[in-house]
Design a protein around this nucleic acid. Structure first.
Length: 427
RNA sequence: GGAGAAGUAACCAAGAGGCUGAAGGUAUCGGACUUGAAAUCCGACAGGUCGGGCAACCGGCGCGGGGGUUCAAAUCCCCCCUUCUCCGCCA
């Protein structure tokens, strides 16, 4: 969501940005917004003048009544009533126009950072950097659910019976490994100075609207029947939503939080579930990091944040790469985003295990999160979010990269304290 | 879930349709007094947002949120939310 003043003054920039994102069908919204904004302001001018007159005359009536000059008061009253109909009419139109304006503005994408590569879709995302040697072992790597099964760690059949496709039962060492990874990620971020947080796992509709676009909402969010509650798709939603309608003192910045939550996603766009196993599922868990900061600092945070994800995966001996999202693949609220992808020795390619995003001031504007500067001025902060780790998907890369020729799985040193000291998982 | 009470500025609190766009106090800030401090006195202190204006400034909205009644609502009516107390249920 952009500043209406910005759209008013820079319609061409807004339009070019839409073209850069290959969303030409949205171009008419810009002119629509400008027209509605113009109408809105002219309505306001007229109706506010009428209201000002009414306020003034009403006061006079009060005075006359106080002095017992009832007849004169009645005269003024009639005068005020005459404008009443016009005020009602204009107020109704004002509401309509504002609703239409708001709706159209929600559809206009955020202005992308100049550094974002232009491209139509995810096929044009750009690999920026690799970390660690992508190894291809000299023994076969089974499909991840098979590795888990050999460890006695998964029951997909029962999950299917109980909850349907896209769910899982983890058992024994695999379940423990799952929680170990989360716990390690939590402490990893606490060591970076972040504050640990466990947020609500359900949020109101207005918070959902504040943190994501309509398109994302439709594709992702589960709604609780009969209540104004949605299951969160990521703790980013409740973490950033935490600031709705707040005015933070500048001294409170930056807000740096790491949160744990389960995540629920419809995965509606995925034509059923495109990948088997626990790659794309309706429920997973995630350790997340979010930052709220001064606008001028957001790109520095962005850089730091995705590098922490890399550091995390490298500490578990998993090779990764940074893949930058091109303009067409960038969600509408984001100004810059990249995926961290882990190496799969089985598929001999990288796959997404995390995503780091700079949302600029879009979420802050939608949520009405403002910061009162030390100079007394109000400004909108920037918000960022990044995955620390999201098992079970992360476990796929973990198991594949740490699988030994004899079928056992090596536990990297940093994880051992969370696994009761175990160095190896045996089939 | 049931019953009751309450939500006014950083905090406490008056206010019960018109002279309240919100008394008073505490805190805070500025000043006087003082060698300094305390105390005392004087002054400032209702935010935010939108519209108009080059600007000083003017105006709309605004007393938990949203509707309504009225020429006029913090004050009356309706719905909702939150908090507190009691009861019920429960990890």
């Amino acid at each position: 969501m952009l500043d209406i003043k910005f759209i008013r003054e820079n319609p061409e920039i807004v339009k070019q940005n839409i073209r850069n994102k290959f969303q030409d069908q949205k171009l008419p919204f810009v002119d629509e917004v400008i027209a509605l904004d113009k109408e809105n302001r002219s309505i306001k001018q007229e109706v506010e003048e009428l209201r000002a007159t009414r306020n003034r005359l009403s006061k006079e009536i009060g005075k006359l009544m106080g002095q017992g000059r009832k007849e004169e008061a009645e005269e003024v009253k009639a005068q005020v009533s005459a404008d009443g109909a016009r005020i009602d009419e204009l107020t109704a139109r004002e509401r309509e126009v504002e609703a239409g304006l708001h709706k159209a503005m929600l559809l206009i994408p955020n202005i992308i950072d100049p550094s974002v590569p232009l491209g139509r879709d995810d096929s044009e995302n750009v690999e920026r950097e690799r970390f660690g040697e992508p190894r291809v072992p000299n023994f076969p790597i089974p499909y991840h659910t098979e590795i888990m099964e050999r460890l006695g760690g998964i029951d997909m059949d029962a999950a299917g019976r109980v909850a349907g496709n896209g769910f899982y039962y983890f058992l024994g060492d695999v379940a423990r490994l799952h929680e170990a990874v989360i716990a390690y990620a939590r402490d990893f971020m606490i060591d970076k100075g972040f504050t640990y947080c466990i947020p609500p796992f359900m949020i109101h509709g207005n918070v959902v609207e504040g943190v994501m676009s309509q398109a994302d909402m439709d594709a992702m969010m589960y709604k609780v029947e009969g209540e104004d509650l949605y299951l969160i798709g990521t703790s980013e939603h409740s973490m950033v939503g935490r600031y709705i309608d707040q005015i933070l003192p500048e001294a409170a910045l930056p807000q740096t939080l790491t949160s744990y939550s389960p995540c629920f996603r419809k995965e509606k766009g995925a034509h059923g579930l495109e990948e088997r196993g626990v790659y794309r599922i309706h429920q997973f868990e995630k350790q997340e990091m979010i930052v709220v900061c001064r606008p001028e600092e957001s790109m520095d945070w962005y850089e730091k944040m995705w590098r922490w994800s890399v550091e995390f995966f490298r500490s578990l001996d998993i090779p990764v790469r940074q893949l930058e999202c091109c303009s067409g693949d960038l969600a509408d609220l984001k100004i810059k985003s990249c995926d961290i992808e882990a190496w799969s020795p089985r598929q001999q390619k990288y796959f997404e295990v995390g995503s780091c995003s700079n949302l600029g001031d879009a979420q802050a504007r939608r949520l009405k999160l403002r910061v009162k500067g030390t100079d007394g001025r109000m400004f909108l902060p920037h918000t960022l979010n990044n995955t620390v780790v999201a098992p079970p998907r992360m476990l796929i890369s973990f198991l594949e990269n740490n699988l030994q020729p004899d079928g056992s799985v090596r536990i990297p040193e940093v994880l051992r304290p969370y696994m009761g000291g175990k160095e190896l998982l045996q089939p």
